[in-house]
Design a protein around this nucleic acid. Structure first.
Lengths: 230, 230
DNA sequence: GACAAGCAGATTGTCGACAATCTAACAAGA
DNA sequence: TCTTGTTAGATTGTCGACAATCTGCTTGTC
């Protein structure tokens, strides 16, 4: 028999595409925190009726990047310093767990995929595409979750990822600096290939702390001034 | 000034009520795993149009207790032994984390609330209301998450709770036994009031293991026979 | 001028109908 | 007999219109 190895075909509902569009707009900062999403306006822009748009928005509300108040509207979530703190604090523990679980399951395919994703990050860095740089960096870190062989852990990570990406994008957007040219993930990848699990866990914790401090201080600055909803 | 302490007004959209109804039906086992949800039939039964019903279903899909295949239908998630294993394995680590974070924040209000919830579980046990017994037991365990002062941790727990409740309900439903009369949460509550955090963490881990083994072996049995979708 | 009542205007929530897609049964042909 | 093409029915996805609710302004009264 033939050995064709097909992957599932793409979702072809408007809803799915709307979800992707909205998510992208939020995670890249096109839609700012606190901003209201006007259903009529968006549906006209997308040339879609409100039904699939509203269903898409419901999904993103559950995903945690939108919030909805009945008869008032649906808004991009606000970002407080505490939210960021909570997310990172939680992420640290999860990272340790994921590394622990994935560690004995590492194989050649793992190392290959690790290199591949690392390369993708470097590519995005060279191209100065900050949005994509954030996205690919998170995908690189996501590998240990995919390898940890625990569906709940993976799912939790994926939920968290949305928000982390939003936080980072917000940060990048604000400081508007050129992207760091050096390769900050070099050590991380090397340790994941090595033999010392504790060291890898320690680094994951500290490595994350690095950008975190900066991001957090930025967020604390935001707390002072009022948010501007459109 | 007055000290009135109002709680938020209830959501008054059909959508919210439908979500509650469907969630309840799933978590109590009225809707079985794998079963398909026919939109037209349900909307007629609830005397509601399909629009709010579909929005409600989208929410539950994101909540992780329904799964949707475009143009095919929306189904109650299947429950595999691995799912249960993953959920518990994850839950164990989270419990330790939650206890660690909540520990220094315990105060009189915490202890009072702990007793109150414990009492509620015992009440449900006396009344032989198995569904409510599961629900209240999970609420008892949820207190440490509410006290841990980390929104992401709490949110993750709440998501997980839905599935845990479903798993337990499935189990109870299947063995159809009278509920255990003894108070299995006695030690848990006592340790949370004590001074030895490690002991509390250890117990949480082992205590959960108890029912878990039984649940898991039941689920393994399910794997053999095909699931019946309606 | 301060304040409450009431009236547009805009926006969200819900409905019923139509379009797109899937499923299963049946017929035709190799 | 097995495979393939067709078709009818059921179900999901999408649309445009109506109802319910909120917001801000205006108006009238003190």
């Amino acid at each position: 028999m033939g050995k064709a190895d097909f992957s599932p075909i793409a979702d072809t509902t408007r809803r799915a595409e709307i979800v992707a569009l909205l998510r992208r707009a939020i995670l890249t900062g096109q839609l700012e925190p606190g901003q209201k999403l006007n259903e009529l306006r968006i549906s006209e822009q997308m040339r879609v009726s409100r039904a699939p748009l509203r269903e898409a928005m419901r999904e993103l509300v559950q995903e945690g990047i939108l919030t909805s108040i009945p008869y008032a509207g649906t808004f991009v979530i606000e970002v407080t310093a505490k939210d960021i703190d909570d997310a990172y604090s939680f992420n640290k523990v999860m990272d340790e767990l994921a590394i622990e679980r994935a560690w004995p399951l590492r194989d050649q395919r793992f190392f290959d995929e690790l290199d591949r994703r690392h390369e993708t990050v470097k590519q995005a860095t060279r191209e100065l595409d900050t949005t994509r740089q954030i996205e690919t960096a998170l995908q690189l870190h996501g590998l240990i979750y995919e390898w940890a062989d625990n569906s709940v852990l993976l799912e939790t990570w994926q939920r968290l990822t949305s928000r982390l990406q939003m936080y980072f994008a917000l940060h990048q957007h604000a400081r508007n600096e050129p992207v760091p040219a050096e390769d900050v993930h070099e050590t991380y990848v090397r340790l994941l290939k090595g033999k010392d699990m504790r060291a890898a866990q320690r680094h994951a914790r500290e490595h994350i702390d690095l950008d975190f401090e900066e991001l957090l201080s930025y967020a604390r600055g935001l707390e002072q001034r009022p948010s501007r909803g459109a």
